[in-house]
Design a protein around this nucleic acid. Structure first.
Length: 158
DNA sequence: GCCAACGTTGGC
DNA sequence: GCCAACGTTGGC
């Protein structure tokens, strides 16, 4: 059992989109970063939980929790020349990119913003708040996971 | 829209 | 194997 954080731009695919999908489940496709791929391919397991993070929006932050409902399998969008995530170097016999399926578990009671996470001393080591971080899929330590959940029902950051 | 901080590519 | 050029991410 591992904890994760997964970023998506709400204009492209946000938590509202996930909520509208059949069984509230969707493949997490289009990831084209090797570190992120390795985690999805090798480490994510069915039953793992991940924070759903909205990036490139105002303000960025965590908006929900998803469960990994299918472990790593080839990202077929890499095989489709008409797909924006097409990668000619990936082929079905030797796939380069992998994805997992995520299922919405619940929305958070409120958005926990990046700004708020940055103010918490207990989260100072979190990957998300480190300078220059760009990973779209990253591990979350169990104590960080609990610390973030504990913020959910506190009054909104002043 | 800007741009810093990466990550990838490809010539050499 | 180095590294300059280029492309992308994502906060601001």
């Amino acid at each position: 059992m591992h904890y994760w954080l997964m970023k998506s731009e709400p204009d492209v695919f946000g938590i509202d989109h996930l909520a509208e999908r059949p069984r509230q489940t969707e493949p997490w496709d289009g990831v084209r970063n090797y570190q992120a791929r390795n985690m999805m391919r090798d480490q994510m397991q069915v039953g793992d939980l991940a924070f759903f993070y909205h990036s490139n929006t105002k303000p960025p932050g965590i908006v929900g929790i998803v469960e990994i409902s299918r472990a790593g399998y080839p990202d077929h969008t890499a095989f489709d020349p008409n797909d924006p995530h097409y990668d000619p170097k990936s082929d079905p016999d030797n796939p380069r990119w992998f994805m997992v399926d995520v299922t919405l578990q619940r929305r958070l009671a409120r958005k926990i913003t990046l700004d708020e996470l940055k103010t918490r001393p207990e989260l100072a080591e979190m990957r998300l708040v480190q300078k220059g971080n760009r990973l779209s899929v990253m591990p979350v330590e169990p104590d960080e996971w609990q610390a973030i959940l504990a913020l959910e029902n506190k009054s909104v950051f002043p």
